[in-house]
Deep mutational scan, measured.
Amino acid sequence: GSLMYASIFGNVSAIIQRLYSGTARYHTQMLRVREFIRFHQIPNPLRQRLEEYFQHAWSYTNGIDMNAVLKGFPECLQADICLHLNRSLLQHCKPFRGATKGCLRALAMKFKTTHAPPGDTLVHAGDLLTALYFISRGSIEILRGDVVVAILGKNDIFGEPLNLYARPGKSNGDVRALTYCDLHKIHRDDLLEVLDMYPEFSDHFWSSLEITFNLRDTNMIPGSPGSTELEGGFSRQRKRKLSFRRRTDKDTEQPGEVSALGPGRAGAGPSSRGRPGGPWGESPSSGPSSPESSEDEGPGRSSSPLRLVPFSSPRPPGEPPGGEPLMEDCEKSSDTCNPLSGAFSGVSNIFSFWGDSRGRQYQELPRCPAPTPSLLNIPLSSPGRRPRGDVESRLDALQRQLNRLETRLSADMATVLQLLQRQMTLVPPAYSAVTTPGPGPTSTSPLLPVSPLPTLTLDSLSQVSQFMACEELPPGAPELPQEGPTRRLSLPGQLGALTSQPLHRHGSDPGS
């Protein structure tokens, strides 16, 4: 009898404990919600809404976190579960008819179910419309201010047509639940991603989709105040780019002037030289400038040598048109050559190039014969006009050509200096018209024969001689050997007369 009593008592207590286990969990969670309300000092109306929603959600799901349970299964099984949970929507909604099984599984994985109690606001006026909503159960109302403009029910759709707008718009009203509602919502990016994977279904979906109420604000059109608020930074940046392009296009129409201050000032006329910023005076940081632009901040801005204009002085008759350009485009679109090309026009420029290279940067340069637009006047290309890779490749080509020119210049200078040193070592320090008596009659020769300089066969020296023939050397430049009979510069000019005159010897006659 005691054994029977113990078994009955144990079973009854276990049954009672299981009955009250759900209630215990409910009270535990309710205590957490109330502690949250007390800690954050939530006001009474919002506090009442929180408690009511918790009670309804507990009775609806029995305190089970559906998302946590669903995430515990593998992905393939999750797709089947989501397809079952959203079967009513996918079967009865017209846009989803005719979709393949794979497309429906992908869509079912992207849908999220939302449960809303009465009085809950789903979308506020001015919120971004980031999702498309399908009503599965219940009814909602749409308000503009305090005026109800629409009441939607089961199988209705609200949001915005995503295929017509590249960016999400703003809501033009509040969406509030009238009863307990079940909503299926899919985010904008998720829907577009699935439709991109199934393009054959995309056309059918957009053609058959009928949005019951379009929440997009109709005033959000390009150029409206609301649109400016939504895309303020983007609009200002776009206007700045367009104004920069218009100014650079105007600059290219004036090829007669070359400016070292950047493309923003290349198009300024002579009357605007004294102004601080020219056409860019209202925004000094709008356009890029070269490193020399920092010198323009000092006094005497109108007389600054940074602004270059072609000189009108005539060229000498024998002067060549100019050196070879550094870039391939210089032959086609440049009416002034790079300062480095002028360094190779003569030997005198070679000796004085490194010492006063900055001073020569603004000297007169030889002109190319074609009066085409200036290379320095070409505006900086924006990322939309020329690819970045093209600019980098041009810079690399320019750097390689500069290296080759520097190597060639160093070799030419070394060769010229070597020839000058050899000339100085071969010439005796001094010569006299009267020579010392020699031991015999073989001493009648006034000077030792001097062998002429070897013929220069280097390509670089031939180019130097060509430049010497075309360029007029300055007075202080050293002379180079030329073709024809060679003669030492330090010898007297009348050596031929010395050989014809008898030598005057000093000596005593033994017979006297």
Rank of each mutant, 00 (worst) to 15 (best):
L162S: 10
T130M: 09
S227A: 12
V258F: 11
M413Y: 04
M220D: 10
S227Y: 11
L215A: 01
V194T: 08
G267I: 13
P387E: 13
T212E: 03
T425R: 08
P288A: 09
G507M: 11
G223H: 10
F353T: 07
K170A: 04
T252G: 13
Q237P: 12
R315E: 12
S345R: 12
T372Y: 08
E229N: 12
P225V: 09
S136K: 08
R360P: 08
S374A: 09
I157T: 09
R388W: 15
T252Y: 10
P383I: 15
T415K: 04
G507C: 09
R400C: 05
L191D: 01
Q401K: 03
P429C: 12
M424Y: 11
D251Q: 07
S460M: 08
L261S: 11
P502M: 08
P437W: 11
Q482A: 10
R265S: 14
S443Y: 13
F201D: 13
T435V: 06
E319P: 06
S289W: 05
V427W: 14
G440C: 05
P481W: 12
V464T: 12
G264P: 10
E229M: 11
L326S: 11
S500E: 07
I135A: 01
E297V: 11
T444S: 10
F311G: 07
R386S: 12
S271T: 10
R144G: 02
S451F: 09
A370K: 11
P279Q: 04
L480A: 09
G173R: 05
Q418T: 11
N349Y: 01
K332M: 10
S283P: 10
P325A: 11
R188T: 07
R236Q: 10
L191C: 03
S171P: 03
G138R: 01
E210S: 07
G264S: 11
P222V: 12
R188P: 03
G159E: 01
V427T: 08
S334P: 13
P222S: 09
P449N: 09
G138I: 01
Y362R: 11
A177W: 01
D146F: 02
V464D: 14
L405C: 05
S283M: 05
T425F: 11
G126F: 01
T455I: 07
R404L: 04
P439R: 10
G346L: 05
P379I: 03
P320M: 06
S410G: 09
L128S: 11
R422A: 07
R216W: 01
L261N: 10
R265C: 12
P199T: 04
D190I: 03
K185S: 14
K241Y: 10
I140Q: 01
D156G: 04
T436V: 07
C470W: 01
G264R: 12
L503G: 09
E331F: 07
Y198C: 01
L192Y: 07
V258E: 13
D196L: 09
P320L: 15
S259V: 07
N155L: 05
V194F: 03
L453M: 15
R167A: 12
L417F: 07
G126V: 03
S293H: 13
G298S: 13
N403C: 11
D412F: 03
E295G: 11
P437Q: 08
D459W: 04
R176Y: 03
P475T: 07
T372H: 14
T425W: 14
I378D: 06
C368G: 10
R408A: 06
P481F: 05
D203K: 08
E471Q: 07
F234L: 11
D190S: 03
A260P: 12
S312N: 11
G256T: 09
P510F: 11
G232C: 12
R265K: 11
S139G: 04
G159P: 01
G223E: 08
L326P: 04
S508V: 10
C337A: 13
L209Q: 03
E141C: 07
R360L: 07
P373H: 09
G438K: 11
P439K: 09
I211C: 03
L498H: 15
L195F: 10
R400Y: 12
D329H: 15
S410Y: 05
L192V: 09
L453F: 11
P475Y: 04
P225N: 06
L398S: 03
L308E: 13
H184E: 06
G153I: 05
T372R: 09
A370R: 08
L473I: 13
A266R: 08
R315I: 15
F311E: 07
Q501F: 05
V148L: 06
K154S: 09
I378V: 10
L183N: 01
P485D: 10
F213W: 08
A177T: 12
S271A: 10
P428R: 09
A177F: 02
P475S: 11
T425C: 08
P478F: 10
T442Y: 10
N403Q: 13
R408N: 14
G511E: 08
G322Y: 01
T248R: 09
L453K: 06
M413H: 05
T372E: 09
P446Q: 09
G323T: 15
S443P: 11
P510Y: 10
G476P: 10
Q254G: 10
L503C: 06
L473R: 05
D196F: 08
Y362C: 10
E472T: 13
L191Q: 02
Q418G: 10
Q421K: 05
R265A: 13
R247K: 11
V147G: 08
D203V: 13
G226R: 10
D174S: 07
L426Q: 06
G145D: 14
R505Y: 08
V148G: 03
H506D: 05
M468L: 08
D509H: 15
D156V: 02
G173T: 11
R358Q: 05
S202M: 11
L132K: 01
E392Q: 03
F353I: 12
S207V: 06
F244V: 10
C470D: 12
L178P: 01
R422Q: 12
D251K: 08
L195Q: 03
A370E: 13
L491I: 11
K170C: 12
L395W: 15
P478A: 07
T218Q: 10
P199A: 05
I157H: 01
D156R: 03
P339C: 04
N338K: 05
D335W: 03
Q494S: 10
P291R: 14
L426K: 11
P369T: 06
P161F: 03
I140R: 01
G126E: 03
T336V: 09
T435I: 12
P317H: 13
C337F: 05
E200I: 01
E472A: 11
S303N: 03
F158W: 01
L453Y: 13
D509T: 09
Q463F: 09
F351T: 12
D127H: 01
Y165V: 07
L419D: 04
M424F: 07
S139D: 04
L420G: 05
E479R: 10
L178Q: 09
E471L: 10
I221T: 14
K154T: 13
T228W: 06
S341Q: 09
P310Q: 09
I157W: 11
P379F: 03
S445P: 07
Y198A: 03
L402E: 03
G126P: 01
A268I: 08
V149P: 01
E479K: 09
E324H: 07
G496S: 12
R388L: 06
E364L: 09
L495T: 11
E331T: 08
L409V: 08
S285T: 06
H204R: 10
R216Y: 02
S345I: 06
P379T: 04
R238K: 10
D249L: 12
G269V: 13
P284T: 11
L191I: 07
R176V: 11
S227P: 09
D356K: 10
G269I: 10
S341N: 11
I151W: 13
I157K: 02
Y165R: 06
R301K: 05
H506V: 09
G159Y: 02
G496Q: 13
L375R: 09
D127Q: 06
A268H: 10
R505L: 13
M468S: 10
L426V: 09
R505W: 04
S208W: 04
G226S: 11
S312F: 12
P305A: 15
Q237W: 06
G233L: 11
S445M: 12
R144P: 01
W206T: 10
P446Y: 12
L495I: 08
L409D: 04
Q482L: 08
G281S: 05
N403W: 12
F234E: 12
R315L: 13
S272K: 04
L405I: 11
V434N: 15
S348G: 10
P161L: 02
T436G: 08
G232Q: 09
E406W: 04
